[in-house]
Nucleic acid binder design. Structure first.
Lengths: 327, 327
DNA sequence: TTGAAAGCGATACCAC
DNA sequence: GTGGTATCGCTTTCAA
């Protein structure tokens, strides 16, 4: 590969001049500029990004840390992040943390050593203190870490109220909730939304809530428990779509028809939700838009551009499909 | 951040010595080693990976280029790749090419400038010639580019025969095929497998094949076409799971019960296939294993370690679930 | 408007 | 065993 020296030699100028035309900064005569550009073409010269990084202490790459890219929420997010990063001239290296602190810290260390310019994280193990120590911009997605850290989330509580309220409208009399893990803030917000909607109904008690761990297998069992305990349940609000799909499966096993006997609503709006039968009614997050916004925000922070806002709380939208019925 | 110079000063030695203990190569006295290590701890020194890259011309990062991470086949693959890369000390930067040549070439250029050590690609636009010019190891996944390029794929043809043969065993008399795009080799192999199984049946003609473009929406329409043309169809082999899910939906629309009236089988074994009702019978690829193998292979190639094999053709496995029935 | 030279932070060769 | 220093390829003062 040709280097800047080769180009300089070809063009009969110094490397400084080549650098100037490369970065179009500083004065350079039109003719010499032309000469340099010809040399660049002739040699098919591409500047070495690593050398550049070393000097500038930036790498034009950002890190994306998610618990698990296989979790259907994240591919779409990752896609949006990568799309806009690419558009803005950044590459993205992605990391699966499995919500494991050691793994996360290991990644952080490596990424810092590589001069990544910023980080997008979906994590509940990361603390504000650690983020500060990184000394690079960090944006949190899907979860709130701390008020000091720029964040992109959705209105989980009001979304949960929408979901539960919709079930009520549909005529459901006993609505159960499949909850996400207690250590994930958005799960707790969704649970709170559910409680605000039905927590003071005369029939309600906490045995209408079961932990489904945001995952399908657990949700199947949890739903079976729920249905065994309370056969009168006629509506389930699941804290995410994956659990809602589990609930549909469990309902079938249990001999309940969805939506006739049991209405089910999810949360997230992942594309999986359209693959089920019946198709899942859900509270949809604008996942792609959120990915676009985080990436945009992060790059602005990196490039020290003005940002009008460092906290984005997106509205969610009820998407009515087949798993809930009008009575 | 502390540099190697700071450490040298702290320890009262030269940077050369620090470098030696860092890389544990060359002779270094036990005591001075201890001194250096103490200095490293005290300063919380982490070597600068960029500087190292510049000198060594490698970056300990690999590129992963896929058409679209949102396509449910790829997250699991990406996960496997990232897992094993990480285990082996590499980061992975991921790129979505949308099967677009310009985008692909743009990525290649950038990645080269950043000294990525190797590439894993799922592409049908990349040519052997271009790969050669890159001058870094490249491994092809899911698609065959060229015999010279290390490749990890599955036995598409025999998998397709398994699928079609299974439908025959189940008692299907008229089996249609939803095919993937013509420019994707694995799609053509799967079609060939189907043809070998039923192409010479007296009833067969090419109107039993419809292009579903590996995508759900197209597959729904294609299935509707198929069913309209040939109401006698009682089995469908879809070239991938996403299309099979589309076929299930179309069947419902058309008023056919799956599997009673119509058996449907897919290909891939993505986790989506377990979310449907009925759950999808499919020909499963060992996606995670394939990802592990490609990453392993690529790293071996990068590190110029001996590889016994540069072509892996995995067996596929028929996973019988609910969308096909025993008559 | 251009060039020489000092970094950026490591590695590795060559002396001693 | 250890240190001095050229080198990796680029950017950016500082002079001319």
């Amino acid at each position: 590969m040709a280097t800047i020296k080769d180009v300089a030699k070809q063009a009969g100028v110094s490397v400084a001049t080549v650098s100037r035309v490369l970065n179009s900064n500083g004065y350079v005569n039109e003719d010499t500029k032309k000469k340099v550009e010809e040399a660049i073409d002739r040699l098919n010269y591409k500047p070495n990004a690593v050398a550049r990084s070393l000097y500038k202490k930036t790498s034009k790459t950002i890190g994306l840390m998610v618990p698990d890219i296989v979790n259907p929420f994240f591919p779409e997010l990752a896609r949006a992040v990568e799309d806009t990063a690419h558009k803005l001239g950044y590459n993205v290296v992605f990391c699966n943390t499995d919500e494991n602190v050691e793994k996360e810290e290991h990644y952080l260390e490596i990424l810092l050593q590589k001069y990544v310019d910023g980080l997008i994280v979906a994590s509940n193990t990361l603390t504000a203190e650690k983020v500060r120590q990184l000394n690079i911009p960090v944006v949190s997605i899907d979860r709130k870490i701390n008020a000091d850290i720029p964040t992109v989330v959705v209105k989980n509580k009001s979304g949960a109220r929408k979901a539960t309220g919709f079930l009520l409208e549909m005529g459901c009399k006993r609505i159960a909730h499949l909850s996400g893990p207690e250590h994930i803030d958005n799960a707790m917000e969704r649970r709170t939304g559910y409680l605000e909607e039905v927590g003071s109904e005369p029939w309600f008690d906490s045995s209408y809530i079961e932990d489904g761990n945001y995952d399908m297998k657990t949700a199947i069992n949890a739903t079976l428990q729920l249905l065994g305990r309370h056969p009168e349940i006629d509506g389930i609000f699941a804290g995410n779509d994956v659990m809602a799909i589990g609930a549909i499966k469990a309902a079938h096993k249990f001999g309940k028809k969805v939506p006739e006997d049991l209405a089910i609503i999810g949360f997230d709006g992942i594309s999986l939700a359209e693959a089920t039968t019946p198709e899942l009614t859900t509270v949809g997050q604008p996942i792609y838009d959120m990915g676009t916004i985080v990436a945009d925000l992060l790059v602005k922070l990196i490039e020290k551009k003005a940002v009008e806002n460092t906290f984005f709380e997106f509205d969610v939208e009820l998407i009515e499909r087949e798993s809930t019925r009008k009575v």
